[in-house]
Amino acid sequence: MKRAQVLAVVFGVAVVIVAIVALSSGTPTPGLIDNGDLSRLQEEGARIVDVRTAAEFTGAHIEGAENVPLSDLAAVADGWDRTAPVVVYCAVGDRSDSAAGMLQSMGFERVYDLGGGIAQWDGALAGGAAAATDAGVAPQVALSGLPILYEFYTDW
């Protein structure tokens, strides 16, 4: 076997070993993550950042998360350790996508973005609405006789 072929084989084996080690360690690759990845990162002690507004955060948030609205993120994150893992999430994934890009551009090495946001989170919640109203039982509201559509929104 020629020297070049031997080197190629050695390189290939090394790549496989690195991949196996990375996979077996359970550490997700930075980028979009799912609920299982977030649980693993929580165990690792990652910083979990809710980039929604304070009102949304108060309503309900992922247990252990801190609230840094997207508009404040650049200023607040400037003092954080850029080598530590940071997970961002929002309601459905739009604001966290912007937040992840912002943190990456600031030099953060391990930025994770919870795909689909808190809307699809199936783990523990904290906050006022964590004990939600029973499904199908509406609170007392003024009725006009017409069906009603409530839209709850924020300007962001």
Partner: peptide, 13 residues
């Protein structure tokens, strides 16, 4: 009161 945890949300009565 409606158990809304995320915005936007729509409640229909």
């Amino acid at each position: 009161d409606f158990g809304v945890q995320y915005v936007p949300s729509f409640v229909l009565l």
